[in-house]
Each structure stands twice: as structure tokens, then as C-alpha cells.
Write a protein that binds this DNA or RNA. Sequence first.
DNA 1: CCGAGTTTGTGCATGCGTTCACAAGGCGTA
DNA 2: TACGCCTTGTGAACGCATGCACAAACTCGG
Lengths: 240, 240
Amino acid sequence: MVAQSARRPRGAERGIPEATVARLPVYLRALVELAESAAATVSSDGLAAASGVNSAKVRKDLSHLGSYGTRGVGYDVQFLIYQISRELGLTQDWSVAIVGLGNLGHALANYGGFAQRGFRVAALVDTDRRRVGEEVAGVVVRHLDDLDDIVAEHGVSIGVIATPAHAAQDVCDRLVRAGVTSILNFAPVVLVVPTGVDLRKVDLSIELQILSFHEQRKAGPLVPPGDSYEAARTPAAASS
Amino acid sequence: MVAQSARRPRGAERGIPEATVARLPVYLRALVELAESAAATVSSDGLAAASGVNSAKVRKDLSHLGSYGTRGVGYDVQFLIYQISRELGLTQDWSVAIVGLGNLGHALANYGGFAQRGFRVAALVDTDRRRVGEEVAGVVVRHLDDLDDIVAEHGVSIGVIATPAHAAQDVCDRLVRAGVTSILNFAPVVLVVPTGVDLRKVDLSIELQILSFHEQRKAGPLVPPGDSYEAARTPAAASS
DNA sequence: CCGAGTTTGTGCATGCGTTCACAAGGCGTA
DNA sequence: TACGCCTTGTGAACGCATGCACAAACTCGG
């Protein structure tokens, strides 16, 4: 799903599986909670319970970072928090630009979870002249045409796209041209990026459709497979 | 990630792989766009390009639904739209309740992408007495304590949790008790649900952390692995 | 009716991710 | 120091997903 990131053929050294990377933030959150309840160490079983996975997975995941546990004891909570933070690149701050200030863009700009992890919302960008100049979450909204300057000024490396679908690819291209190398896309559209740029997507409507699939299975399908197409020429999804 | 959903040991018949289910909504969106540009048929290559995957995957995915293509021609766009919609359960409407009307809850309530796919935002729920009674996106906000009635009234089967983390598990329990069997969680916390309830999560902060990991790799790690822990006893992540 | 061109459907090989199960290793107590 | 207890780290087996490559099957033109 994500682009590449240099092949690293040598052994286990330095090659962390993508599935593991996706779980590290979950462990990190669980560990921070444990630290708050004054726990000094935690076993793979304990961390597994707090993260909603099984303990074998926890141990294998953590083993990719190095041998940071102590047999018979567990893992030092503070030390593990530091190691995971470092591995995820959270020991430095990242500047984020959010493009598109509709409902979702506003929500993201005000979302507290970003700043907590070292992500600074450095810039807000829109094309609507009425929104430009306005202040949202303490940041002044600027125009998309100034993107190159904005990215350079703040050293933005991560861009968040919260525009309507039809504008997303253009915004994406502009972000890439301005020098942004990681993009998080909320627009319901497939984006194309050049090699070297990482792209992740969050699609609210797709999540609901997956739930719908399983929900239907629970009740048993109402329509027998393959049938009754002619009786319903206009399917549920009719517009873009 | 999702709970279970009855084992179906028999052959290829009726057992659609989870990875395929996750891609069907993407195909569906691409097909609807193709239909708008008046295309009658599409090849696996064409659909693959529009969906950002490769054509072998498209063919294998679609083969799980049945043999709906014509060799030498491709797939009938309208027919495929209908078949995927039916498989995903989108030929019926689903009632959705959104709990928590902060910035994100508002954004979700106003998000047009839901209604388009047959998801009706039937109810908005909050605990803040000042918000109860208010109208958002044409729906009156009601109190969490009335959840049982609300779910029963509207036949809600899907719940969306957009509350702060500390309230999420309680809200989740209440939803389950009221009869909701599918839950989409936006709160940054690991939820526990009984067997038979499907749970999916969207975590904005985790997505950024994954991007951060890859971003760091591009530049080369600033801190040599395993070192300098003592110099930085307070990691980036310090609060919940 | 035939042959060239096109595109599906799928068997097979490969790789990644998960899980089991256990040896290796560290701690505490006597 | 020695022994028993606990937990990590990992080898190995398994299962799922991906992608290749090709036979089967359909269309169209002559």
C-alpha cells in the first residue's frame, strides 16, 4: 500500500516488517498509559492485553527493535517508550500542512492527538478566498498558491489532504512539487504519487462498507447470489 | 483486526477473503466513475488502473463473486456495480448512529459520502446537555441515556464512536447492549467487544506515526540505534 | 467458417505474517 | 552457590495474499 523505502536484504538487522511498524504506535500508546499508572516493567503478556494482540506477536515485534527485554522480568516501560519513539521518528518534531478546511479539515486542525506525538500543524491551506486569512486552531489559513513558500518556511514534510475528491490529485501534485514526501489522504479517490513519496489513505466510507459486508453476512443475504439484477437496474450507488 | 464471522470451510464458494472485501469498495467507486463517463464495459486492466492495483488482483478478486466477465470483452460496468453492491450489502439502507459531537463528530455528521452509499445517519448522540436538542446536519442531537430507545426506533445496526478516548469503552458497551452489532471507532483506544460484534478502527495519529517512520528512514536515522537514552529521559510522548 | 486478436479465470510458486512451542537466560531464595 | 521459577527470543510450521503465466473462451473481420 505504501510505496517502497529502499530494499534492505541483509538479515533481520534494520528491516522492520510493515505489519510490525503499524503496531508500534499501538504499543506506544499502551506503554504511555502503563507509565502513568506507575508501572516500571511490563511483560509481553501484559502489553499484549493492553494492546489487543497476542503475546507472541508482541515479542516478535519488539525483537525487531533489538533485545530490549529481560528474561524472567519483562520490559522496562520507560526504556521501551524511548526505543519505540526513536524507531518511529518521534524524538524529533514534524511539521504538518493540512490542505482543505471543510468540516474534516477543521476537525483535524483542532485534533489534539497530533501535537501530543510531536506533530506540529504548521500550516493550513485552502483555495477559498473567504477562508484565507481566517484563524483556525491558532493558525492563519493561507492560499494554496503560496504552497511552495509555506512548505519551505516551515520545513513541512508531511501533507494532509482533506479536500473534495475532485481537487485531491491536483493538491497532491502541488504538495509533491513543493517538496513534501509523505502524504495522508482523506479524499475518496485513488491518488498517484512518484516513487519516493509515501502515501497513506483513510477512507471513512470504505470502512462503513466493509462493516456493511459483515453485517449482511450475519443476517444471511437477503438477495440470492447472482439473481434479480433486472429487477433493480439502479443500484444503491448512483452518483459519484 | 475484525472479529470473526462464521467459518465457512467449503471450497471457494461463498468465502470471500478479507483482503478482497477491503478492495471491493474501491472497485465500486471506480466503476461508478466509469459509468458516469458512459463506459459500457471495462477490462481488468482498465479497472486496475482506475483502482490503483494490478490486473491479476482485480481478476482474482472478482472471481470470488462469480464468473461475471466475458473473455475477450471485459466486465459489464452496470452489472458489476450491481453485483458488488449486493455483495457488500449496499442494496439495502443501513441506519448509523454517531456518538460524540466534537469536531470530528460534526465532520462525520456532515460528511456526504455516507448517504451516497446507502448509509443513513439516523441519530446523533452526546452526553453534553448543552448539545442535546441542537440540530446538526438536519438531525436532532439526543442524550446517550436514551440510546436503547434510539437504536430500537431507527433500527440502528452500525455505531460510530467519535468520543474522547476515556469515554469510548463505556459508549461501546452501551451500543452493544442496545443491540448494535457493527462499530467504527475513531477514539484512540483499544476497545473490547463480545464475539459477534464487528469492530473496525480509524486512528489518525497512528497513520501519521507510520508516515513518520518512513520519513525518518528516508533521511537516515538521526540517532544511532540503541543510544542516547539517558540523555533524553523524557521522550516525545509524555501524556496520554 | 476460420483464424487472429483480446481478455478472463485460475493453477502454481513465492513471500509475508501469524502462531506454536521451547530452549536460553536472568532473578530470587535458601 | 545452587535450584526453581518466570519470561524472553526465536526456529519452524502453517496459512493467507500476491503475482506470474497460460489455457480457455469470446469477438470480429474476411
